[in-house]
Design a protein around this nucleic acid. Sequence first.
RNA 1: GGCCCUAUCGUCUAACCUGGUUAGGACACGAGCUUUUCAAGCUUGGAAUACGGGUUCAAAUCCCGUUGGGGUCACCA
Length: 471
Amino acid sequence: MADKIITRFPPSPTGAFQVGNARTALFNYLFAKQNSGSIILRFEDTDKARSTKESETDFFEGLEWLGLTLDGVYRQSERGLIYRRYIEKMIAEGSAYISDEIPKETAAVDKNRTENDEDEEGEWHDPLTGKKEIVRFKNPKKLVTFKDEVRGEISVDTTELGDFIIAKGMEEPLYHLAVIIDDFEMGVTHIIRGEDGIYNTPRQILLQEAIGAPRPAYCHAPFILGQDRKKLSKRHGTGAVKELREKGYLAEALVNYLSLLGWNPGTEEEIFTLEELVKSFSFSGLQRAPAVFDIEKLNWFNREHLKRLPEETFMKLVKKWLPKEIQTLPEWSEERLKRLLPELRERATVLKDLRDAGAAGEFDYFFSSPIPDISTLIPKDTTRGEVIKHLSKTEEFLSAIPEENFTKESIKEAVWAYAGEKGRGKVLWPMRYALSAKMKSPDPFIIAYVLGKTETLKRISAARELLSSGT
RNA sequence: GGCCCUAUCGUCUAACCUGGUUAGGACACGAGCUUUUCAAGCUUGGAAUACGGGUUCAAAUCCCGUUGGGGUCACCA
């Protein structure tokens, strides 16, 4: 009987939730769910100086938004007593010892280290380091061989590591120690992380062996890089999950795209829901080389997922993203908005496009009568008299359509033959412009349908009268 | 820099393990069609096995080297 599969997502809350984090969380989630297991969220906040609550919040919100529900939350900062137990035991058993070495005197150095720059080179030293009980690991200095699900067998000689430091105090373990104690205590069976974890693995294995913990399975996924082939960061402008959310990307789209960065399902399918990914995910589809994040492809995924949204869901999003001002326009109505939905869905890449276009007045004419410009109403090579005639003909055709059958198709059908005969530009341009007063817009049939029969006729006749009496 | 990993269109990738494909798909890009306009849509085109050596009847595929890229070398995580 196999043990329950348990994976974990262990971010250090020292910065924003990045897409790289998101993908790691996603893979852990997929693998756990696929095997009816669970996934733990563990904040690795043992570095008190750099950990922040804001960062934690960003991770929580991002994870929730993506729909990755985790099965438990831990903070290493709250587990001091647990670590003490292990550290004391290791010392008692002789696998660790207190080093009386004097701390490095580094307080004055690196003071001008750049803020907020995670890629900064060079060592960082804790200026506050005082006299503490530095605990070192008694390194057995041997060759450690482990299996990585992506790269196969990896062997590393741990001699060079020396008696590395594992704790700054009895309740202050360093990363490696805290990790293996937590993974052991939490029953973690599979460790899926970024490829930077590869070289952490041997020393963690040494530590596991020292405390008698079983060895979990390891899987190291390649990194996600920016267009410059450097690790994705704020510098690229696309790294933060929160930013993508604020631009109106769909969580489904991001999840889908991220899943395909560094992994492939072995088929030519590309559109997946989270549930489908849970079914399809496998370590064997993981790549070995890093992948470059391409916002254009994400855009495509977003459009695809936008198309697939149920109407009610899309309607809610539209109401949320459309500027409030539009919703106070004189002719605003939900029915009209509902008829407009297909058009909005087709034109938007991200939801923010709706907000921007709305703020730019692109949709105003759907909810308030526009004032057309007389000369623009008249196409080239057309006389004012002709336009008046076409407009009144159009009115006549549309009037004949029963209210309940006033659809894009019937509207087009009603005027199409006449427009073909007289010249489409000469008939359709005035019609479209009379309805929208915009140089660019969807076609006149769609606008008329959205406006409804009454309003459409009203606007066309208004334009006609404007021409007849115009200056 | 030492050590490790890696290398197919601009990007994500299939084919590699178990040599024999017109090297396939998607994004992006070009062209055409359609269209009153703008989008969308449809059709279609260009685009890659990093380089150099081997092994073999045959190499994207196996081996070696070069080059490029990534990772890693903390009292950070």
